[in-house]
């Protein structure tokens, strides 16, 4: 009898434990509601993640660079791969001869740069690994001008904190018109030696699929930070007023602004 009772108790406990672990479908979906309490608690850890990353990456520590032999495939294009925006199509049609990168904001002398002017500046070539937030990686050789050189050419105000990249590609059509891709990085990353505005990939001019004529490389962060189809650069001390204020298209949709992990 004792045996029987014991085994029933065991069975009931077992059943309770099993039942509590099986279908939890949707139980934690409130975590996806941005602005909600549960989500807010989860997001509080982002501050810690950011501080630790900024501490680790405070120095000019470099992202690993690879040997030529590690380039085993073309760079995999992701996100927008062929913008249909009229102004961009015009640039493509004339092989970007009319392209002018505008640099403005908190700078001494706002200016514009043609692609030839950018290519004439001392360049940097690096073979690095592109890590997408989705989880895949691809190694490619990137050639471009250090962003620091462009910033020095226009003279950045001491109070400036961020560099914002405005892009040609439309991601979606919102109530107030097309929503274009944009991104931003802080001055430390902007002046990092491996942060370049790339115009070449794997010894070829940067293709439309990979962001022609210019795309950003921020090698110590994830792929979505590396804006393609860069139209203009704005130096600023606040990210408010750009997009929805999150500092980037994906950041406005719940992704971390500092994407080192």
């Amino acid at each position: 009898m004792t045996r029987l009772l014991l085994s029933r108790r065991r069975f009931l406990t077992g059943a309770a434990v099993s039942a509590s672990t099986v279908p939890l479908a949707g139980c934690f979906d409130s975590l996806g509601q941005r602005g909600g309490t549960a989500r807010g608690v989860m997001e509080s850890a982002q501050w810690l993640t950011y501080r630790v990353q900024r501490w680790m990456l405070g120095s000019d520590s470099l992202a690993q660079e690879y040997a030529e032999s590690e380039i085993r495939q073309p760079q995999r294009p992701n996100g927008t791969t062929n913008p249909q925006d009229a102004d961009y199509r015009r640039l493509v049609a004339e092989d970007f001869s009319g392209y002018r990168l505008s640099v403005s904001g908190m700078v001494a002398q706002p200016g514009t740069f043609s692609l030839d002017e950018i290519r004439a500046m001392p360049g940097r070539t690096q073979i690095t690994r592109h890590d997408c937030v989705e989880g895949w990686s691809c190694i490619a050789k990137w050639t471009g001008v250090p962003l620091a050189s462009v910033l020095d050419a226009v003279g950045v105000a001491p109070a400036a904190r961020f560099v914002v990249f405005d892009c040609y590609d439309t991601m979606e059509n919102g109530f107030t018109g097309p929503v274009k891709y944009y991104e931003s990085i802080d001055m430390e990353d902007a002046r990092h030696p491996q942060t370049i505005l790339a115009y070449g990939c794997n010894d070829q001019p940067l293709s439309v699929a990979n962001g022609a004529p210019l795309r950003v490389r921020v090698e110590r962060q994830l792929g979505y930070k590396m804006a393609k189809y860069v139209r203009a650069i704005t130096v600023t001390d606040t990210l408010a007023g750009f997009g929805e204020g999150g500092g980037g298209y994906w950041e406005d949709r719940g992704y971390e602004w500092f994407a080192g992990i």
Binding site: S61, A63, R129, D131, G135, R220, Q221, G260, I261
Partner: peptide, 8 residues
């Protein structure tokens, strides 16, 4: 898996 930690 973190590109930032890789640099560190």
């Amino acid at each position: 898996m973190s590109p930032g930690f890789n640099a560190f």
